[in-house]
Simulated assay, not measured.
Amino acid sequence: MKRILTIISLSALLFTACSKDKDPINAVEGNGKTSLTFDARFGNQDFALNTDFTAEGKTFNFNKFRYWISNVVLVNTNGEEFKVPASYYLLEETGTISLSGVNNDLPTTVYPATKREEVVLKDLKAGDYKTLKFSVGVDPKYNDNLSLLSGELSPLNGMTNVSWMWLTSYIFTSATGKVTDGTNSKNLKIETGLNANYKTVVLDLPQPLKVSPTSTSGIVLNVDLAKALEGVDLMTTPVVGAAQASTMAAVAGNYSTKVFTVKAVN
């Protein structure tokens, strides 16, 4: 019954959600743009679905990796902050997912295979920037009220499968697949969410990011999924969610302090 009510609620949101909240924080008629590339990895290997990765005597294989990046801020060399308006982005790598209706009473739909690693920030004030800030997840204003839309936020954006969200709030990060220690194999489902686990990442750039109307620029980040799992006994706790509060908090902490590093500034 919960599942049915959730689908009904999501359908209602699609038709009744209020118009997008543009969140015009520091909105500027800018004259430059830049890109953020989130290069997913597992340790020293490029990340890919349905691929074996070995770490700490275990073999990992993933069928989904997705996370929300929000509230992007650039800090210039004078220490001034530029808050990118409505900056909510869904980064993900998933295979094709066929979604059947509950008890076959709803039509089958398909969520297509998706790989998204790049975000383009537009209308930026020209200048030199020394620090990048962003948050992992969705801030309480929007996480507590799914009828509010901003940027790419929507319960139906990447959330078509109701198991990808927690009834009344967003899942911030999700990685699913399998892990084996050579003897035992476990199905993995490592998720973070809830307002307490909304975390901000602060990255100082190795050289200034130059934004201007006459040139292109970008920041490339390493996103190391192996770091998100550090300190978690996955053979004992292969499923991490709201019911595993302390473990989920540890994973969220890893995302804020270990997972994202600067690879290059172009």
Rank of each mutant, 00 (worst) to 15 (best):
L14G: 09
S215Q: 07
L90K: 12
T183H: 14
S217D: 13
P213G: 05
P140V: 00
L5F: 15
P140K: 10
G158T: 15
N78R: 12
F134H: 06
R3F: 09
L203V: 10
E191V: 01
P85T: 11
D52R: 09
I171K: 05
A12C: 12
S70R: 02
A250I: 00
P85E: 13
V262K: 10
C18F: 11
V262R: 05
G43H: 00
S246V: 02
T16Q: 03
S215D: 14
E93L: 06
S150A: 14
E81T: 10
F47K: 02
P112K: 11
Y67F: 15
T257Q: 08
D46E: 10
S185P: 00
T261A: 10
L194S: 09
I171A: 07
S87H: 09
S35D: 10
S100V: 07
N78W: 04
K133H: 09
K33A: 15
V201S: 09
L49Y: 07
R41Q: 14
D23P: 00
K2Q: 15
L132F: 07
V84N: 09
F53T: 01
L36F: 13
A113W: 05
P155E: 14
V119R: 01
N103I: 03
D39F: 03
Y88N: 07
E152C: 04
L146K: 05
K199N: 06
W68H: 05
R3Y: 14
T51I: 10
E230D: 15
N222E: 05
S135W: 02
K141W: 03
T37F: 06
N104Q: 07
G79N: 11
G137N: 12
L91N: 11
T168C: 08
N103W: 05
E80P: 02
K115F: 08
D204R: 08
P208G: 03
G158S: 13
F15N: 05
V28A: 10
K115C: 00
T37L: 12
I25P: 01
P24I: 02
P85W: 11
L91M: 13
D46N: 15
M165Y: 11
S9H: 15
E81G: 01
N71K: 04
K210G: 01
W164M: 09
T173R: 09
